[in-house]
Design a protein around this nucleic acid. Structure first.
Lengths: 253, 253
DNA sequence: CGCTATATTGAAGGCTATCAAGTCAGGTGG
DNA sequence: CCACCTGACTTGATAGCCTTCAATATAGCG
């Protein structure tokens, strides 16, 4: 990295960070909600969604990316026959609609899991900004990169893992996202229903419930509705590590 | 176009070429073999891989993008415990990068399934090529978008579909890629082993073999080792359409 | 020619889906 | 305020698809 470039871009970067502040990308300390708040007047399209409302639906014309400001969303596709497949849950600071980039329409739908605030960022505006500030491309790439990461992780989970391991891996992943939001990574509040979670994990609703109970019985966590408390992070990690295949010995403490 | 835009795009591509990693996408249709052939003298690093050799391995420093010229590859990740998960198979004309996807190192590995020719596009050369083929600038998002398409299709397959349906969907998808290569879409030559295919589909090796036999028994196709002949495309499509859930009646013709 | 890897096929068992009943929380209306 | 109802969740029993173990057959290869 060339330092003069870094310095020269510093100003633009600071101005532009507000676009991506608190996004999925880790930002330098000091770039916080203040910068994001300065973006406020630039965002023309702000929406307050109630539970169950959608930002966009599969097939809608795609012209914007969306930044979750509060609340949470799920994204999913409906396959031709009517089956639904959830492929992500999105917390504040995260960006949805990436699947609509470079296409005329969205690949899937995005629905609010609770009362949520969402900011729309039109592609045109985004491209204009990126053209003027190449430095931001790295930010953009990291955002897309994170999205790809999450998708690949999802694929691994769906691949050939036992139900217990799938749930454990999800909880660990969700906990780390919780932490990024300065929330307690051991006290999770799941915004999604058991049905959505089960769908995401490629399991039946009842199986998810059963595996929750299983971990509670082992003292790994406590569960009260959608409130999950991780009592033994070490055991939770052990569950993920052990269950590599289909045949995991129950003897695994 | 002004120079600043060009520079901006170049930066964007420089930052983002790693995103092509693990993609199943084709080059944009506007970049056909003619254009690829024009690139020939520009490509310094052309590699002939034997079966089992890798272009790159998970964790290697990522500095190049790869175009499959002949043969075929598989991309996969090895999860911490040793399990392997195949993400995709890549035919001629398709792009395989590696990608730390926004990182410095590759997210997975790419291995030749047969004797294959692969062109490497190091960072510096990529920039030159992009200057000569500005169409790539405009279509990069579409390439990413196609990658997203393929990944989501993979997710749907792994989600909650019966083994028979997974295999049928894969065959249809593979047939369409065959067709894009001007090959007979009804006479497939699968480059991957049953093990890799099973892994990709999230099934056991034997299950894939069994479902092949099942379709043969129904007269949908003939199978001889890795040679698959689709006799009844209509029935194959019906299999995909019917088996939406876990409980598909065997009565389906 | 024999060895190895790949693939097919069979049998038994397990993990998970499905069906079903029951519990609980939240919202509504009398 | 309370009864009722609806939806979300839990728990149990059964069935089924797929995995695993095991044996066999065939193609590729030195």
């Amino acid at each position: 990295m060339d330092s003069s470039t870094t310095i020269a871009d510093a100003n633009m970067l600071r101005r532009s960070y507000k676009l991506f502040a608190l996004s999925q990308v880790h930002l330098p300390t000091g770039v916080g909600s203040t910068d994001l708040d300065r973006l406020d007047p630039l965002i023309a399209d702000k929406r307050l969604l109630k539970r169950g409302e959608t930002i966009f639906r599969q097939g809608d014309a795609s012209h914007s990316l969306y930044i979750v400001r509060s609340g949470s969303l799920k994204t999913y596709v409906v396959d031709p026959v009517g089956g639904e497949q959830v492929f992500g849950f999105h917390l504040p600071g995260e960006i949805v609609g990436i699947g609509g980039l470079g296409r005329d329409s969205f690949l899937g739908s995005a629905e609010a899991l609770e009362r949520s605030n969402v900011w729309a960022l039109p592609h045109a505006q985004l491209l204009q900004i990126l053209d003027q500030l190449p430095v931001l491309h790295q930010q953009m790439m990291q955002i897309i990169s994170r999205w790809a990461d999450a998708t690949l992780e999802h694929l691994v989970i769906m691949g050939k893992l036992r139900a217990l391991v799938r749930l454990a891996m999800f909880l660990r992943s969700f906990a780390s996202r919780h932490e990024r939001l300065s929330r307690d990574p051991l006290n999770l509040l799941l915004p999604m229903s058991r049905r959505d979670l089960a769908n995401y994990l490629g399991l039946a609703l009842e199986t998810v419930s059963r595996e929750f109970s299983h971990m509670v019985a082992q003292g790994i966590l406590t569960v009260d509705r959608r409130e999950v408390c991780i009592l033994r992070p070490d055991l939770l990690a052990a569950v993920c590590g052990d269950g590599r295949s289909m045949h995991a010995p129950n003897s695994a403490v």
